[in-house]
Design a protein around this nucleic acid. Structure first.
Lengths: 222, 222
DNA sequence: TAGATTGTTAATCGATTAACAATC
DNA sequence: TAGATTGTTAATCGATTAACAATC
C-alpha cells in the first residue's frame, strides 16, 4: 500500500494521541494502545507505520519520544510551513484568525485580496493586493496556498499561485481547478459536507464512511 | 453497493452539471456526458443512478428535467433544510455570512454562543445564548446542527444538540464526538486538510485520492 | 524460557471500472 | 433494422483486517 489521504490524516491523529500519552508520563506504547486511542484496529496502526517506514521493537512496542519525533519528521513539522491565503472574505478571514495552525507549525504569512479596503501592512498577518501575490510568493519561496476567493476568481488565482511556484493548494471554491503544471489540490466544499449530513440523517441509512459516522456512541474519544 | 459519502457528493455534482446543461437548452443527456462533465467514468454515473433508483431509457439516455427533479428529491431539496450553528467565533461567523447555502435550499435559522456580546435578536440570523439552544431546536423541530465551538466545549454542545432532537451534525472541532443516541456526525478538520496538502506537495508522492488530486491538468473543469 | 508484540503476508471488504445482454 | 445506450453483473483495484511467523 502507498500513502493516501486517510493514512496521512491518521498519522496526525497518532501524533496527537502520542502527545497525550507522553504528558501522562508514559515512555513506551503498543499498537493496541494507539489503535484504541484513535478508534482503529492495531493492524491498521502497524500497517500505517510500515508504509511510512516506522519500526518498533517486537515485544517492546514503540518508544514514545522516538515515535513522536519520527511522526513529526514525516509530517514536516521540523520546520515552520509558510502558507499564504488568497481571498479575505468570510472563510479567508476566519482562517487568518484561526489559532489552530500555529501549534502544528503552520504559519500564514500573508493574505491577498482584490479589495483595497482589506489591504493592511500592519495587521498581524498583512493583507496585500492580489497583484503582489506572484512577486511575494516568488521572493519568499512559499509552496502552499489557500484559495478562499469566490468561484469566479478561483481559477485565475490558482493560475497565479502555480505560476509563482506554489506546489500545493487547499481550495474552498466549489469548482474543479485545472493546471498545466503539477500541483497538489485538496478541495473542501463546505456545502457538500453539510449536504452529506442532511442526506444521511434524513435518509435513515446507516453509514460509516470516511469522516462520516453514525451511532457515534460506539467510538472512543480522541 | 450502498450509498456512501462519495456517492452522495457525486449526486450533487451531477445535479450542478445538469443545471448547466439545462441552461444550455439541452433536453436529454447521456451517462457519458455527465461523466465527462464531472470527471468520472460513465459506468460510475450509471452505477450511482442504479444505487439511488434512478432510471433512464436505453438508447434515449435521461430526460434532464426528470433527472434534475429526481436528484433534487433524493438530496432533500424539495423543502428548505433548517440548520442551526453553535459557536459564533471565526468559523461560525464565516458560515453565518456565507451565501453558498441558500441556493442549495439550506437555511441557517439561528446561532448560539456563550458570549453575551455576540447575542442579537436583530441580526439577519439571530444569535442567542447557548442556553436557548435546546428549547429553540425542540420548538422548531430542527434536525441539523453545525458545531463551531472550541474543542473544550464541543462535546457539551453536541450533547445538548442530541438531547434537543438534532439527528445530524457537521463538526469543525478537532475531536471525536461521542453520543448515546444515534446521530450522524461529519467532522471536518481544517488543520488536517491543510496538513494533507503539505504532506503530498512536499513528499513528491503522486497521489490521486478522495478530493486530493495531483496533476490537475488531467481533469475536466466542473 | 514462555509469553507477548511486531512486521508482513493473506484474506476480506468495499468501491470503481469493464463488459455485455437487453432493448429502445 | 442497425446502432447506440442503459442497467447490471463480473472483474479489477485499493484499503482494511486477520492471521501468524519471527523475535524480543
Amino acid at each position: 500500500m502507498i500513502a493516501n489521504k486517510k493514512s496521512v490524516a491518521r498519522l496526525s491523529r497518532y501524533k496527537n494521541a502520542l502527545h497525550r500519552f507522553k504528558t501522562m508520563g508514559l515512555v513506551r506504547i503498543f499498537s493496541d494502545n494507539l489503535a484504541d486511542a484513535i478508534g482503529v484496529t492495531s493492524s491498521q496502526v502497524r500497517k500505517d507505520f510500515s508504509v511510512f517506514g516506522i519500526t518498533g521493537s517486537k515485544r517492546g512496542g514503540y518508544q514514545i519520544d522516538d515515535l513522536f519525533a519520527q511522526l513529526n519528521n514525516i509530517l514536516g513539522k521540523d520546520q515552520i510551513q509558510e502558507v499564504i491565503i488568497a481571498g479575505v472574505g468570510n472563510i479567508g478571514a476566519a482562517l487568518l484568525k484561526y489559532n489552530g495552525f500555529e501549534k502544528e507549525k503552520i504559519k500564514i504569512v500573508a493574505a491577498f485580496d482584490i479589495d483595497a479596503q482589506k489591504w493592511s501592512d500592519t495587521a498581524p498577518v498583512p493583507v496585500y493586493s492580489l497583484d503582489r501575490l506572484i512577486p511575494f510568493v516568488n521572493a519568499r519561496g512559499i509552496k502552499i496556498g489557500i484559495i478562499a476567493v469566490p468561484e469566479s476568481a478561483a481559477q485565475m488565482v490558482f493560475d497565479r499561485m502555480v505560476t509563482s511556484g506554489i506546489r500545493g493548494v487547499l481550495n474552498f471554491a466549489p469548482l474543479r481547478l485545472r493546471s498545466p503544471k503539477q500541483c497538489v489540490i485538496n478541495s473542501v466544499n463546505l456545502v457538500t459536507e453539510l449536504e452529506n449530513v442532511i442526506f444521511f440523517s434524513t435518509s435513515g441509512q446507516r453509514i460509516f464512511l470516511g469522516e462520516l459516522e453514525a451511532d457515534a456512541g460506539a467510538h472512543q474519544v480522541e
